[in-house]
């Protein structure tokens, strides 16, 4: 793993994909390479796409790639699909819809399996975004799993979130509304030729009307996208969508909110990294001195309980709440 980070910054696809793999597999040294590229990240516009399976997220992503390429931008895509909880295997099928761009050196599509992570993304997604960013991709699109209400992890990573819906989902929309609807910066009604598109439009409008309205605040637009069976109409709609995506980024820049989103992202990343760093270190020690086994025994015998045991561990390894932190001179 010699100098992967350096090669990534030179735009090398093979190294970039390898580094993402090393992060996914949690190989020793992978974090070190992320450390090297981190100072050079923060330039890409990260766009998230969420919405139920079959809504057309991958098909839209494919068409958006075309739009952004025509505008002269380079594009990275991370497409997340679920891992089987039984075998740990996964079928990553989003790529099928984007293969026409496979030979374009300005496009890099990488599939990720969730590997047990909840929330619609994989644990490696944040670093994979950094890798594509450091490669110099102007736009990084992230397609989430799309299982339903719990798909909110994407707001920690994206500047612009697209919620993709289709008419005729019946009551499903009610459930989705509760969680995912609040995170949308842009709503897409896909397959808008279908019956119920008008009704869905009204429902989303009503929901947006209920939300808080500060003067000058971004009002999430609702973009109707016609069937792929009408290529010209479809292209025109997705062109409009790509304009809206760029307008949202411009809005964030103009109103100084881009920094807020970056801050939100950094906070989520630090949270995750701190948890990892502490858990890994402490667990390794507990296992090594046999303490973990003794704790299990105590819980089994009802001598103690998991909360008390955890507090004792925190006290011992982290100095507890009473211990004072060393202060920098």
């Amino acid at each position: 793993m010699v100098e992967l980070g350096k090669k990534v910054m030179a735009g090398d696809v093979r190294s970039a994909s390898r580094l993402i793999r090393n992060i996914e597999d949690n190989l020793p040294g992978a974090k070190q390479e992320i450390r090297k590229i981190f100072p050079y990240t923060g330039k890409a516009h990260v766009v998230g796409l969420t919405g139920p399976p079959g809504a057309g997220k991958s098909t839209l992503t494919d068409e958006l790639i075309r739009c952004f390429r025509r505008k002269g931008k380079t594009v990275g895509v991370l497409a997340v699909d679920p891992s089987s909880p039984f075998t740990g295997g996964a079928i990553l099928g989003d790529r099928i819809r984007m293969q026409r761009h496979a030979e374009d050196p300005g496009v890099f599509v990488r599939s990720l399996a969730t590997r047990g992570t909840m929330g619609g993304l994989s644990k490696a997604a944040g670093d994979a975004i950094h890798v594509m960013d450091a490669m110099g991709k102007d736009i990084v699109m992230v397609e989430t799993v799309g299982i339903g209400q719990q798909e909110v992890e994407i707001i920690h990573h994206a500047h612009t979130v697209l919620v993709v819906l289709v008419p005729g989902m019946g009551d499903e929309i009610q459930a989705i509304k509760a969680g995912v609807m609040e995170i949308g910066d842009i709503f897409v009604i896909n397959k808008a030729h279908r019956e119920g598109a008008g009704k869905l439009f009204k429902e989303i409008t009503a929901m947006l009307d209920m939300g808080p309205r500060e003067p000058g605040a971004w009002r999430p637009p609702i973009v109707m996208v016609e069937s792929v069976a009408e290529p010209h109409e479809f292209e025109r709609c997705v062109d409009e969508l790509s304009d809206k995506i760029e307008a949202h980024y411009q809005y964030l820049v103009n109103t100084n909110q881009l920094g807020d989103r970056q801050r939100r992202r950094s906070l989520a990343e630090i949270n995750a990294a701190v948890r990892d760093a502490i858990l890994e270190t402490v667990l390794r020690r507990l296992v090594a001195d046999g303490e973990l086994d003794r704790m299990v025994e105590k819980a089994l015998n009802k001598e103690s309980d998991p909360y008390t045991l955890a507090e004792q561990v925190a006290e011992r390894y982290l100095g507890g709440s009473k211990a004072s932190m060393p202060v920098a001179e």
């Binding site: 891992s83 089987s84 075998t87 740990g88 295997g89 996964a90 079928i91 990553l92 099928g93 790529r95 099928i96 293969q99 496979a102 030979e103 599939s111 399996a113």
Partner: peptide, 19 residues
């Protein structure tokens, strides 16, 4: 392959060797 625990990327039909 998925059932064997592998991560499988499927690209579909009609691919050029370059793709």
């Amino acid at each position: 392959f998925r059932d064997a625990g592998f991560e499988v990327i499927y690209t579909g039909c009609h691919q050029t060797p370059e793709q």
